[in-house]
């Protein structure tokens, strides 16, 4: 399974690309179609629990989940947990992106650095990142530093690989056009290299962000007093499945929303690539 798939999106889908729908499902219809299955299942379960066909103790019906959301929101707890998790993801993602971009750029530019650094990074990449947890706890303690480091490590590799791969696959022929017009190394970077690696970079960032959300859960499992991962552990220990499902739903929403935010922010720069929606 590739990083992109682990992170929950298809790599073939370019940011800002509109999917082609079959002719019978135009406009908003396909969006509604996606709601049919979950709503039917939810309603069915709700009815089953209310009529006593099932007891709903381990699998709470939607109304119980909704109650839990409202309770947690009213006590202000929900916001606290969301905020804690989001801040961790943000800090880890920023750190991992920064390190991954720098390392990828340096390794991409210089053959010597690539030969020196790439084998080590590839070897480290093969380590499942969760395996670092005990070491990070020893090194950084059980508080924020170890959590953010773990997320950053998870984000670092896809970003590093994305940047390195993008730089190595820059079209030599287009770089030559830059040479014909005597661009300085700085101008060549800004006007040719950066625009041509941007699409792959955005894909790498989205993959990294997806992994960031994965690792924040692992990080919060290793002992946290707040955060959505804490809600999960707490729900398990106190036997509150509705709290677990609530946290899972919020993860889904936050993951989708942050991915949407990222691809929307990048879309104006990738307009030239958007081949489906504008072609005639």
């Amino acid at each position: 399974m590739g990083i992109a798939e682990q992170a929950g999106f298809s790599i073939a889908e370019k940011p800002g690309t509109k999917a082609r729908h079959p002719k019978r499902m135009r406009g908003l219809a396909p969006i509604f179609a996606g709601f049919i299955l979950p709503i039917t299942l939810g309603l069915g379960w709700e009815i089953a629990v209310r009529t006593g066909v099932a007891d709903g103790r381990l699998v709470p019906p939607p109304s119980r989940i909704f109650e839990t959301v409202v309770e947690l929101a009213q006590s202000g707890e929900l916001l606290l947990h969301i905020k804690a998790t989001c801040l961790r993801v943000l800090a880890g993602f920023s750190g991992g992106t920064l390190a991954g971009t720098l390392l990828g750029a340096i390794a991409g530019y210089s053959l010597l650095t690539r030969r020196l650094v790439d084998p080590t990074l590839q070897a480290l990449r093969a380590v499942p990142s969760i395996a670092w947890v005990p070491l990070f706890i020893l090194w950084f303690g059980i508080f924020e530093t170890s959590k953010i480091t773990l997320i950053a490590v998870g984000v670092l590799f896809p970003v590093y690989l994305g940047v390195l791969g993008a730089i190595l696959s820059v079209d030599r022929k287009i770089v030559e056009v830059g040479r014909v017009f005597r661009l300085s190394p700085f101008a060549l970077t800004r006007r040719v290299l950066l625009p041509s690696i941007l699409p792959a970079y955005v894909v790498a960032l989205r993959g990294g962000l997806g992994l960031g959300w994965m690792f924040v859960v692992a990080a919060e499992f290793m002992g946290a007093s707040e955060g959505l991962g804490y809600l999960l552990v707490d729900g398990q220990q106190l036997g509150k499945p509705q709290q677990i499902v609530t946290a899972i739903l919020i993860f889904a929403i936050l993951g989708q929303a942050s991915d949407w935010l990222l691809s929307t922010a990048a879309a104006p720069f990738l307009r030239w690539q958007d081949s489906f929606s504008t072609s005639d």
Binding site: K173, E176, V177, P195, S196, W272, Q273
Partner: peptide, 13 residues
């Protein structure tokens, strides 16, 4: 000036 076999246009411009 140089003109290549392929147009070599920058797709983002």
């Amino acid at each position: 000036g140089m003109i290549f076999q392929e147009p070599r246009l920058m797709p983002w411009l």
